[in-house]
Simulated assay, not measured.
Amino acid sequence: MIGTRTPFRVSFIGGGSDLKEFYSRAPGCVLSTSIDKYMYIFVHPFFDEKIQVKYSKTELVENIEDIKHPIVREILSEFNLQGVDINSIADIPAGTGLGSSSSYTVGLLHALYAYRGEIVSPNTLAEKACYIEIDVLNEPIGKQDQFAAAYGGLNIIRFLEDGSVKIEPIKMEEDAYKQLQKCLMMFYTGTSRSASEVLIDQKKNIISDKDKFNAQLMMTQMVEESKDCLVKSNLDEFGEKLDSNWILKRTLSKTISNSIFDDIYNLAKESGAIGGKILGAGGGGFFLFYCPPRYQDKLRFNLKDLKEVPFKFDKYGSKIINMDK
């Protein structure tokens, strides 16, 4: 049995610039980290040539083309692989803004390469995942999640106009790195959403609305400023950048936020948070807040109707955790 563990990610600043509609006109960049919430994939030979796939549903089929799970179907088609049993377990529900779909894709690719006895690089995993999700399945998504899941760590991920992607690790002082994690809090809004719906609208606006394109451009510039804050250990200033980023992000599409989420954000700031955002494309899922520890009890109390999910940073990206063939 082959097992992989692939992290989810938290995207701080610059999301949306990983869409082709943006980076084909101006270089994009995202500041993000992988976290200690994971997608686990296990692949085991099935006792005959059938294929069994277990996720929130269980499928048992004779042929690859009969698989309903689109990512599994297309990856198994690429590998031309029958007679396997594929199981997945996730720490966090899908549709909550942590890049779970791409973590699944990267994790399954990693597991199947290992199943064939192949060792592949994080770049190969990320590029292949982008190909499956964007080129084959025509998902209206960007490239940041696949690279964050494959590489892991705290990085700037750069999206160049020729379609290439560069990973730039951020090197912080160890004490500041630990303190940053202590200042970040994540709360589940209780709602999930389809990232596709939000991103379709955002892509349309980037193409047709100059002001929204310029807002996205300002967010990429803020990535560079935020990196400077982290490298120089100016953490509260980083929190302020999160706030400025959220103000810009919510202008990109009417589907990103709503009056309920605006009220949550305003209450968090009144409770001591310096900045924050809805993670992922927006429209639901998790709120992330930067809040100094001295105000965190107040923030927890005032957001007691939301589920807090503690987390730490992950440094390693997708890993093989079991290889028993």
Rank of each mutant, 00 (worst) to 15 (best):
G190W: 08
M219W: 00
G276L: 03
G83L: 12
T189Q: 06
S192H: 08
L125Q: 11
G152L: 10
I167F: 02
P93Q: 04
M222F: 01
T6G: 05
P140S: 15
I200E: 15
M222A: 04
I92Y: 02
R193C: 04
F238Q: 02
N87K: 11
G28S: 00
K312I: 05
L288E: 10
R300C: 12
K182Y: 07
Y23D: 03
E118Y: 03
L125M: 12
L248E: 06
K298F: 03
I89F: 06
K54E: 15
P45F: 08
K212Y: 02
I247Q: 15
T6I: 09
D175P: 05
S102R: 06
I119R: 14
E174W: 06
Y295H: 15
F79L: 11
Y40E: 06
V30H: 00
G276Q: 08
Y40V: 09
N155I: 07
E59T: 10
D262E: 14
I206N: 12
R158Q: 06
H69D: 10
D18P: 03
Q179L: 09
A126I: 11
K315W: 09
L242A: 05
S100M: 04
S32Y: 04
I278M: 15
S253N: 08
K312G: 14
D324M: 12
E49V: 09
L31G: 01
E59P: 12
I13P: 01
N63Y: 14
V231F: 03
E161A: 01
K68T: 06
V223F: 00
F301E: 11
S24E: 10
